[in-house]
Design a protein around this nucleic acid. Structure first.
Lengths: 185, 185
DNA sequence: TTTAATGTGTAACGATTGGTTCATAATGAA
DNA sequence: TTCATTATGAACCAATCGTTACACATTAAA
């Protein structure tokens, strides 16, 4: 039988896109209600903590997705397989830079302070997984970590450049160059 | 004699820091008034267009600063001099990544649409100046442009990582690596 | 000293903010 | 069918939003 009630988990991907589009401050409860089609009372029913709980749930969901689809593969698969897979995954996830990284955007915003643990954890875990992957070769850990940082910066910066220019090329070019560097060891 | 009235130009650097700190949506007129010490009427006296005009003036001021202190040197000086100068300038300007790039932050935000010309122009001119500088060597224009994009992405991404981790090292490492690559030609 | 221009404080505007209340409606298990 | 649980719509709250109006201060030039 068809479900006739909304569920909390169904809301989260929608909330993610709304926060991406409007930012944390710009996404008012009114906007969220209109865009999701859920009434105010429903939203507060699922997220008694209000907007802050909504954003936290979104960040948690994003973290989980990256854990399963990016971080774990990086740590478990050989580099020559894991790196192209990561490239494909983020190319698809970020829509060639036109879909922003919510965690990165929050890091630049004032809300960074409210979600600092989630933000810090996301990048720390990504950096750690990538470092471990790159260390597979002859590199020192220091070298591998620096390469990992450069790669993550290229991805985040690539998104900014792509959004600023309206041109996917900046993202693709920055990411491709970074991954080629990472792969060559 | 000391000036007893506020002037528009004195407000702009303060406004810039406020937008950096709170974001465009988060920087309410009330906050701006309190932080600058200027009354609402003074703010609207200097910026009849309201908050949008304030942000536009800030972006214009930032653009001018980079034009004079970064873009022109990149185009006029030899690469081996211009690149370290750019490195020093941005290291100081962005406080090792702890001071965000307002243009980059706006590019990720919904306000991007309102200031698209300014945002696009800022990165396009920076990219062009850097490309011209890098092309000085034996590189093709395509190669130089790709290196320029990678360098700008490293800077913007470095800021995000530094803010996310609270650690300057991510910025310094990403930028140093990018500039070492750019220099080596 | 007058005058016009420019800057500022106070108060208010209607609209919207995040958040709450509560009666009602839909649900699945007993 | 009963019943407790869960979901929802509508109205509401005080606070704040961006913006405006207007009287009053201050200024530099006449």
């Amino acid at each position: 039988m068809a479900r006739s009630y909304l569920e909390r988990d169904d809301l989260i991907p929608q909330l993610a896109e709304i926060f991406r589009r409007y930012g944390y401050e710009g996404a008012s409860i009114g906007v969220i209600s209109k865009e999701t089609g859920a009434g105010r009372s429903s939203l507060y029913h699922f997220f008694p903590g209000g907007k802050e709980e909504m954003a936290d749930a979104v960040l948690a969901q994003i973290s989980d997705w990256f854990e399963d689809n990016v971080f774990v593969p990086l740590k478990e698969k050989p580099a020559e397989q894991a790196l192209p897979e990561m490239a494909a995954a983020i190319e698809a996830y970020f829509h060639s830079g036109q879909r922003i990284c919510l965690v990165g955007a929050f890091a630049l915003d004032e809300v960074r302070n409210r979600f600092s643990e989630r933000i810090e954890g996301y990048f720390a875990r990504w950096c750690e997984a990538l470092t471990q992957c790159l260390q597979e070769g002859a590199r020192s850990q220091t070298e591998a970590r620096q390469e990992a940082i450069s790669t993550l910066a290229a991805i985040q910066g690539g998104i900014i450049l792509a959004r600023a220019s309206g041109n996917d090329m900046a993202f693709q070019s920055a990411v491709a160059a970074a991954l080629a560097r990472a792969q060559r060891m």
